[in-house]
Simulated scan of single mutants.
Amino acid sequence: MTTRTVPGDTAVAIAAPDSTTPIPTRWVGPLRISGNAATGEVHVPLATYETPLWPSVARGARISRMVDSGIQATLVDERMTRSVLIEATDAQSAHSAARAIHDRLDELRTLTRTTSRFAELLAVRHEIVGPLLYVRFEFSTGDASGHNMATLAADTLLSHLLARIPDIRYGSISANYCTDKKATAVNGILGRGKNVTTEILIPRQIVADQLRTTAAKVAHLNVTKNLVGTLLAGGIRSANAHYANMLLAFYLATGQDAANIVEGSQGVTYAADRDGDLYFSCTLPNLIVGTIGNGKSLATVEDALDRLGCHSERPVGDNARRLAALTAATVLCGELSLMAAQTNPGELMRTHTRLERTNGAPHAH
Rank of each mutant, 00 (worst) to 15 (best):
L252S: 10
S69V: 12
H160E: 13
T197K: 09
D306K: 12
S145F: 02
P345N: 08
T213H: 11
E78S: 12
V129P: 00
D155W: 04
G255S: 10
R274Q: 14
R354P: 01
R99N: 13
P55H: 07
I101V: 14
N36R: 07
L221E: 05
L248A: 13
K181N: 13
F118V: 12
R204V: 05
P52D: 01
E302L: 05
K225M: 13
P131L: 03
G295Q: 09
N319R: 04
A271V: 04
L305Q: 08
E356V: 14
L323C: 05
L221P: 07
H352W: 12
T213W: 10
S116L: 08
Q72H: 15
T110C: 11
R136Y: 02
D277Y: 04
G146R: 00
T74S: 12
A271Q: 03
L338H: 11
S172K: 14
R322I: 01
T269K: 01
E356R: 15
V331P: 00
R4F: 11
L355Q: 03
A328F: 04
E120K: 15
T21Q: 12
T115I: 01
E138T: 00
L305E: 09
T351Q: 14
G171V: 06
A219E: 06
H160C: 10
D90I: 12
L323Y: 04
R212F: 13
A163S: 08
Y177F: 14
A144W: 00
F139I: 03
P22C: 07
N294P: 01
L298V: 05
L305R: 07
Y243R: 00
S312W: 13
T10D: 11
A328Q: 03
H160I: 13
S172G: 09
A88D: 04
S19M: 11
A15S: 07
L355S: 01
M149G: 12
T343I: 07
L122P: 02
V262W: 07
L105S: 03
L332N: 00
I200N: 01
G276E: 10
T20H: 14
G193A: 12
G255H: 04
A73R: 02
A258C: 06
M349G: 06
D18I: 00
S174E: 09
L161H: 00
T269R: 03
A253S: 14
A150F: 06
D257I: 04
S265M: 15
V223Q: 12
L190A: 15
N260Y: 00
D303T: 12
I236S: 06
K182R: 14
Q205K: 15
R307C: 00
S56Y: 03
A272P: 00
R192T: 05
A272Q: 14
T74R: 11
L308Y: 10
T112V: 10
M246H: 10
E41L: 09
R65K: 06
I101H: 01
C178V: 05
G267S: 09
A249L: 08
S19A: 15
P45Q: 06
Q342V: 09
D180C: 09
D167I: 02
I236T: 11
L336G: 06
T330P: 00
R62K: 08
R212G: 08
T283Y: 07
R212D: 14
A340F: 02
A37E: 01
A37S: 09
R125A: 08
L190R: 10
L332Q: 02
A94M: 10
S19G: 11
A73C: 04
P345R: 06
D9N: 13
A325G: 14
R79I: 07
N344P: 00
T74Y: 08
T300M: 09
L287S: 00
T224L: 05
R65I: 01
G235A: 14
